[in-house]
């Protein structure tokens, strides 16, 4: 790991704290630039998220309104589903996981572009 890696990590973590959904960016950096295998990059990104989101939450808990019952319900359903997802990721060929990740990026990117247009349209009307 180099100084550039640390700088890139700082930038991506800052974007993550601002809610720009930068998990995909970290995986892309690790796979495309650093040549890491897909699953290693995904594991690295999970660690990255725990620390960056954990740090952000300290600030957000003080400034935002979070509905705890709704949050608890989503967590309750999310834990067993995450178990299934991770088990599947570890069993599937890495190329398939990488391709699924690519499809996810396409959907996330398209959503980011399209949802912006929708908001502007509403503001104008």
């Amino acid at each position: 790991m180099t100084f550039i890696d640390m700088l890139v990590t700082l930038l991506i973590a800052t974007m993550s704290g601002m809610g720009i959904g930068s998990g995909g960016l970290m995986v892309l950096y690790l796979t495309f630039v650093r040549g890491a295998p897909q699953l290693v990059a995904q594991g690295f990104n999970l660690l990255f998220f725990l620390f960056s989101a954990g740090a952000s939450m300290v600030i957000h808990l003080d400034r935002r309104s979070i509905r705890l019952p709704a949050t608890a319900l989503m967590i309750a359903a999310g834990l067993p589903a995450a178990y299934l997802g991770a088990r599947l990721a570890l069993r599937l060929p890495e190329g398939i996981v990488a391709r699924l990740f690519g499809f996810f990026l396409i959907l996330a990117g398209a959503n980011g572009i399209l949802s912006k247009q929708e908001r502007k349209t509403k503001e104008k009307s």
Binding site: F49, A81, A89
Partner: peptide, 19 residues
């Protein structure tokens, strides 16, 4: 909420991000 949490959890486990 349960469906949403389940979907987000599955994606997170499968792709390590995205939920």
């Amino acid at each position: 909420l349960l469906a949403l949490g389940g979907g987000a959890g599955f994606i997170n486990g499968l792709l390590g991000t995205g939920g």
